[in-house]
């Protein structure tokens, strides 16, 4: 089974995003970047499927400027076999990304596409579902467990209020939730080995997808700040304040 893992380069999850003074966007200059945490979980799951003998090949793909090759090398160091970089400087929306990925799916015919449920920058939570729709595949979103069972895939999904299990016919698209696995660290020998693994570069334009913007970013602002609160000395004082001042308990 061939597995395709789309990944995204995003701000490191430990870094607080700052809004540009002119409110045009978030300032990403000189900010530490990393592989999106949910994408890392997707890479790990694909590599585990390969180690279990279920997957035969793991292909990582990323869309963006040249810098995202760094994250593709990370995926290769974690165990992906080859990488595809779709080069684009455009500001892409999830729909564009899904359409570009659909072209790769067409070319590579993976039985399984596994990707993060959302990126921690745009917080859209769209790409996997859109890709599934465009490629007419079943989808298993927010997965906390994935079991390959012949030509079916059992996916346990983290839903509001519990866990839902669905059975999908392969080929399928899966998006990862946090508890699917705990990604490994790339070892130094594997990081060295990753440098020699194949990384193909193609341009987004060559895929013939209309990348005209559908959404205009009007402005980006800091969220409303909460006014500083007060410190209380005791539980008694706290309960008093909640009753008489905040009036949220009786």
């Amino acid at each position: 089974m061939k597995v395709l893992v789309p990944i995204k380069r995003v701000i490191d999850y430990n870094v607080k995003a700052r809004v540009k003074p002119d409110n045009s966007d978030v300032d990403l200059s000189n900010v530490k970047m990393a592989i999106n945490p949910f994408c890392e979980i997707a890479v790990e799951e694909a590599v585990r499927l390969k180690e279990a003998g279920t997957a035969t090949e793991v292909i990582a793909v990323s869309i963006g400027d040249k810098a995202c090759q760094e994250q593709l090398r990370t995926a290769l160091a974690l165990g992906a076999d080859k990488a595809i970089h779709i080069e684009s400087d455009a500001k892409l929306e999830s729909l564009h990304v899904a359409k570009l990925l659909a072209k790769i799916v067409e070319q590579e015919s993976p039985e399984l596409v596994i990707l993060g449920k959302q990126s921690i920058d745009s917080d859209n939570n769209q790409t996997g579902q859109m890709l599934a729709a465009l490629t007419k595949r079943a989808q298993g979103t927010f997965a906390s467990k994935v079991v390959v069972d012949g030509n079916k895939l059992q996916v346990t999904r983290e839903v509001d209020g519990g866990l839902q299990t669905v059975s999908l016919s392969l080929p399928a698209v899966v998006t990862t939730d946090l508890r699917l696995n705990e990604p490994r660290y790339a070892s130094l020998p594997n990081i060295m080995k990753a440098k020699r693994k194949p990384l193909d570069v193609i341009t987004a334009d060559s895929l013939g997808v209309d990348l005209a913007p559908r959404i205009e970013l009007v402005k980006v602002e800091e969220p409303a700040k909460r006014s500083g609160g007060v410190m209380v000395e005791s539980v008694e004082e706290l309960v008093n304040k909640l009753k008489t001042e905040a009036k949220v308990i009786s």
Partner: peptide, 30 residues
């Protein structure tokens, strides 16, 4: 269509506010 996710305010029929970067920024999108 391009979806607009998790709106927290409606400015007009085309324009909406939504949090990005874990709510560290609020984007107005059209």
């Amino acid at each position: 269509k391009s979806q607009i996710s998790e709106i927290i305010d409606v400015i007009d029929a085309d324009t909406f506010k939504r949090p990005i970067y874990a709510g560290n920024a609020i984007a107005t999108v059209k």
